[in-house]
């Protein structure tokens, strides 16, 4: 894409036809930009304004005077740092599991015949069409002490007594991976579908084993998709509330849960707002890190080419 400078650059006087074309192109671009105006207004009103309002509220007392007390209290509390750590831990673990499960799944989908792949994709998408509440409570029913999973484990003698699969970190993680897996698989699958089959055939014809082909040809070519998937999973899960609230049994308290708790037990809007801003900073940091990783990878890719 060209920047605005290119749009406003004076047309060279020599060729009238070319200047006309450029004017047309400019008009077209302005028209397309104007199409995004309603969306921009909506985002401004519904996302940016509330964020600014929360930011403002985090530095006000109940009476509306300026204060840094909310932030001091927040940053000096061990509860805050514990919840930040839990948040990162949950998102990180979800990401690792999504990659471990999702990359092989995407690979299988991408190498299947198109017709079969389409059918399998519907199966992958199916959970996305179910409400998160239904899915979360579904896991509660499956994972609890007398749930199906534990009945199967104790019935077959694999476990001598019911395992603690829910109301803890494990249960929360299972619920989150289940929610995020389709969102991870889709971009990875798309990237893998786009790989030129000739590249893989070339690797094979030069004697590369399957693992080697995967490591040196397929995965590097699908890296863009994997990075997008990773970004979606990690950033999306930073703000997760319902899953830890239902499956965590009070033992798992990421920032989102902490915000609710500060609101419902202390009615402390200032502190809850400061926590919200902290969560936003966390998201921005994660996004910046992933963007930096992409730039780094892009540079490396160019030097190798």
């Amino acid at each position: 894409m060209t920047g605005p400078a290119a749009m406003t650059a004076p047309a060279p006087p020599a060729d009238d036809g070319r200047a006309g074309l450029r004017r047309d192109a400019q008009r077209e671009r302005a028209f397309f930009l104007s199409l995004s105006l309603p969306a921009l207004v909506l985002v401004g009103l519904c996302a940016m304004l509330p964020i600014l309002w929360i930011l403002r509220q985090s530095v006000l007392t109940l009476r509306g005077e300026f204060t840094l007390a909310n932030w001091e209290k927040l940053l000096s509390s061990s509860l805050t740092w514990k919840s930040v750590w839990t948040t990162v831990e949950l998102s990180g673990a979800t990401l690792v599991l999504c990659m471990a499960l999702g990359i092989p799944l995407a690979l299988a989908l991408a190498s299947a015949p198109q017709k079969l792949a389409n059918r399998l994709l519907i199966l992958v998408m199916l959970p996305l069409w179910t409400s998160i509440l239904v899915r979360t409570y579904g896991w509660l029913v499956l994972l609890r002490r007398d749930g199906l999973v534990n009945q199967a484990l104790t019935g077959t003698g694999i476990a001598s007594e019911p395992l603690a699969l829910v109301y803890n970190f494990t249960g929360t993680l299972i619920g989150m991976v289940h929610f995020m897996l389709p969102l991870f698989v889709l971009p990875v699958y798309a990237a893998m579908r786009d790989i030129d089959g000739n590249a893989i055939r070339a690797a094979a014809s030069m004697g590369a084993s399957l693992p080697r082909t995967l490591a040196t040809v397929v995965l590097p070519l699908a890296a863009g998709g994997i990075r997008s998937g990773a970004m979606i999973v990690f950033i999306y899960t930073l703000g997760f509330f319902i899953t830890p609230a239902v499956l965590g049994g009070g033992q798992v308290s990421p920032v989102a849960i902490r915000i609710e708790k500060v609101m419902s037990t202390f009615q402390d809007w200032g502190q809850a707002s400061a926590l919200g801003v902290l969560l936003l900073i966390l998201v921005a940091m994660a996004a910046a890190m992933l963007a930096a990783a992409r730039r780094l990878a892009g540079r490396k890719g160019r030097t190798h080419a």
């Binding site: 509390s77 061990s78 509860l79 308290s253 037990t265 202390f266």
Partner: peptide, 12 residues
């Protein structure tokens, strides 16, 4: 408030 903070810290 003081009690709830002490309680939350205990839980965590």
């Amino acid at each position: 408030q003081e009690a709830q903070i002490a309680f939350d810290e205990m839980m965590n």
